[in-house]
Amino acid sequence: MSLTENKILTIEGRGIPLEGNDIDTDQVVPARFLKEITFKNMGDYLFYDARFDEDGKAKAHPLNDSKFKGGKFLVVQENFGCGSSREHAAQAIKRYGIKAVIGISFSEIFSGNCKSLGIPIVQLDKDQIAKIAHALTDDPTVMCALNIENETFKVGTKIFFFSMAPTLKASLVGGTWDALTLLQNNDQKTNRLDASLPY
């Protein structure tokens, strides 16, 4: 894949609002689903225990609500993705079809995993998130548009301005969110650092 193909500039689609602070990665993908040596099926397990009861019957949850089907933006609250480092959580979100996550705050490791997979993480303040969630609940068909370069998120005609860490923005816009190539380009310098360490 060339870097141009990987560039993430704009995303358009509908949104799915999710309530609750501190949604941990055990809620995003429960541990019993980690016993697979590929990420292939993770999309099926997204929020499994919140969506299904022990007999597999669907519970009330935005992801089970036909109104929100096909949404590309997941709108969350505070400290989303806290807990374990499992990339399975970000993989599940991506494989389910979510293209970007919008919220108040995110755990560090989860954000890093999202970056590695090219899922933009957008941070807005509490009031703005409340407004967005409200708008989506009111009208699930409303179209949203994320523009990374301009740092704007549009919900219908309303525009929300966010500020993204310059390093994340550069990685998304430049198509280098998976940093492997950048790290490989520094191979000689890496070798010199290895040789300079006292251990």
């Binding site: 490791i109 995993n113 860490a165 790290l183 490989q184």
Partner: peptide, 21 residues
């Protein structure tokens, strides 16, 4: 010492390094 995701595990295996803030 810190936890990383699986894509980063691959970065470390292949390059012994990571891109971080």
């Amino acid at each position: 010492a810190f936890g990383i995701g699986t894509t980063e595990v691959r970065h470390v295996l292949e390059t012994q390094s990571l891109a971080l803030n």
